[in-house]
Simulated scan of single mutants.
Amino acid sequence: MSPRAPVKPLSAVPRAVLALLAAALAAQVLWQAGAPAPRARASALPPAPSLAALRLAALGEPVALSKAAMLYVQGFDEQAGVSIAWRELDYGKVALWLRRVLELDPRGQYPLLAASEVYGAVSDPARARLMLEFVHERFLEDPDRRWPWLAHAALVARHRLHDLPLARRYARDIRLRATGPKVPAWARELEVFMLEDMNELDAARTLIGGLLRDGLITDPHELQFLSERLDRLHQSSEPRQQDGGPKP
């Protein structure tokens, strides 16, 4: 083994070389300090692959791939410490990814939760409506299992978008399509509250009467609640006497 070459002390390096290195280091530090912070862009989210391609990539484990795909989509909210506001995301791409996740795992609920409660909470009404419509379309595929998310979408339409007709449309579809034994009575009654908010009292009375007449409500407490509400609606529709007006 050849002997190691002696290490020269720092004092042996020419001063001109040291000055050049120091200048290069200072320039690097100044450039890093002055460079703009990296900004993740929503366009970085690529279009979702086809379902056939995803099933091929799943290698017989579609549920596992659906969970990984969901994490992949949500990972674009935080990239290298840079947050992306939901309103900057391409919601068309987000909706397609959520759809693919559901197609890989039809019994999964998280994509619908994310659409209605996370992405649907965006302050941009157009994007929020896109997410609510996504929930509605997916609800139609499996109403008896996916009704909770459409109920939430109806409330978002009512209280955030202040769109009562849209809220009523969602509530009506729950009443007409989510007819399984595990769907609670209050979900079918949601349309009543929307009609009352719209001041459609005649329609609300008709709906309550239909629910009572058709035997769709069997719980005694629910029956009492609806009966009392029907009585109040009847009372509110009676003409009120004006002060100083003729008495009957």
Rank of each mutant, 00 (worst) to 15 (best):
Glu137Ser: 11
Ala40Arg: 05
Ile84His: 00
Pro36Val: 09
Gly120Ile: 00
Gly108Tyr: 12
Ala114Val: 12
Ser66Cys: 08
Ala52His: 13
Ser50Lys: 05
Ala44Val: 03
Phe76Leu: 09
Leu56Ser: 14
Met70Glu: 13
Leu54Lys: 07
Asp105Tyr: 05
Tyr72Trp: 10
Leu96Gly: 02
Leu98Asn: 06
Pro38Arg: 13
Glu117Arg: 07
Ala114Arg: 05
Ala114Cys: 11
Tyr110Lys: 10
Leu112Pro: 00
Leu132Gln: 02
Ala64Asp: 15
Gly34Ala: 15
Pro111Ser: 10
Ala121His: 12
Glu133Phe: 03
Ala58Ser: 15
Arg100Asn: 03
Glu133Ala: 03
Ala80Arg: 14
Gly75Arg: 05
Gly108Thr: 06
Glu133His: 09
Asp105Gly: 10
Val94Phe: 05
Val101Asn: 01
Ala48Cys: 15
Lys67Val: 11
Val73Ile: 09
Arg39Tyr: 01
Gln109Ile: 10
Ala40Ser: 14
Pro38Gly: 09
Ala68Val: 05
Ile84Leu: 15
Gln79Met: 09
His136Arg: 14
Ala85Ile: 06
Leu98Val: 08
Ala85Pro: 11
Ala68Pro: 00
Ser66Phe: 02
Gly34Cys: 14
Leu130Ile: 05
Ala95Met: 01
Gln79His: 06
Arg41Gln: 11
Gln109Ala: 15
Leu132Thr: 01
Ala126Arg: 12
Gly34Phe: 09
Arg55Glu: 14
Arg87Leu: 08
Arg87Ala: 14
Ala52Met: 06
Ala37Lys: 14
Leu56Asp: 13
Pro49Ser: 08
Leu59Pro: 02
Ala114Lys: 08
Pro125Phe: 07
Arg39Thr: 09
Ser123Cys: 04
Glu133Met: 03
Ala68His: 02
Met131Trp: 01
Met70Gly: 12
Trp97Glu: 04
His136Met: 06
Gly60Leu: 05
Tyr110Asn: 11
Leu45Lys: 01
Gly92Ala: 13
Asp105Met: 04
Ala33Asn: 09
Pro47Gln: 08
Glu78His: 13
Leu132Ile: 07
Trp97Lys: 10
